[in-house]
C-alpha cells in the first residue's frame, strides 16, 4: 500500500495539491485514479497501527502463556 502511495505521488500532477492555505490545510484535486490512490495510501497508518497493536497483543499473549507454564513448573 505504501509502495503504491509513493508510486502514485511520483505520478501526481504538480498542481494537484493546493498549498495556498499552508502545509496544514493542503487540498488535493482528485482527477484520476492515481490521485485517489495517493489520498487513500496517505492514510496507511490506519492499517499499520491496528496491525502493530494486534502483533503486540499476540506477543503479550505468548508471554502470558509462557509465564503461566513456568509458574506451573
Amino acid at each position: 500500500m505504501t509502495f503504491c502511495g509513493h508510486w502514485a505521488e511520483e505520478g501526481l500532477d504538480p498542481g494537484a495539491i493546493d498549498r495556498q492555505m499552508g502545509h496544514l490545510f493542503r487540498q488535493l484535486h482528485i482527477t484520476d485514479l492515481g490521485g485517489l490512490i495517493y489520498y487513500l495510501a496517505s492514510l496507511d497508518h490506519l492499517i499499520l497501527i491496528p496491525a502493530f497493536w494486534l502483533f503486540y497483543l499476540g506477543l503479550k499473549d505468548f508471554l502470558a502463556s509462557q509465564q503461566k507454564e513456568l509458574a506451573q513448573q
Binding site: 495539491i17 493546493d18 502545509h23 496544514l24 490545510f25 493542503r26 487540498q27 488535493l28 484535486h29 482528485i30 482527477t31 489520498y39 496517505s42 492514510l43 496507511d44 497508518h45 490506519l46 499499520l48 497501527i49 502493530f52
Partner: peptide, 20 residues
C-alpha cells in the same frame, strides 16, 4: 473532487508516534 489533506497529516503524525 477536492479533498482536504489535513486528515492525512493528522493520521500520519499520530500514526508515526504510535508506531514508534
Amino acid at each position: 473532487m477536492i479533498w482536504s489533506l489535513a486528515p492525512s497529516l493528522v493520521v500520519d503524525i499520530t500514526g508515526s508516534i504510535l508506531a514508534i
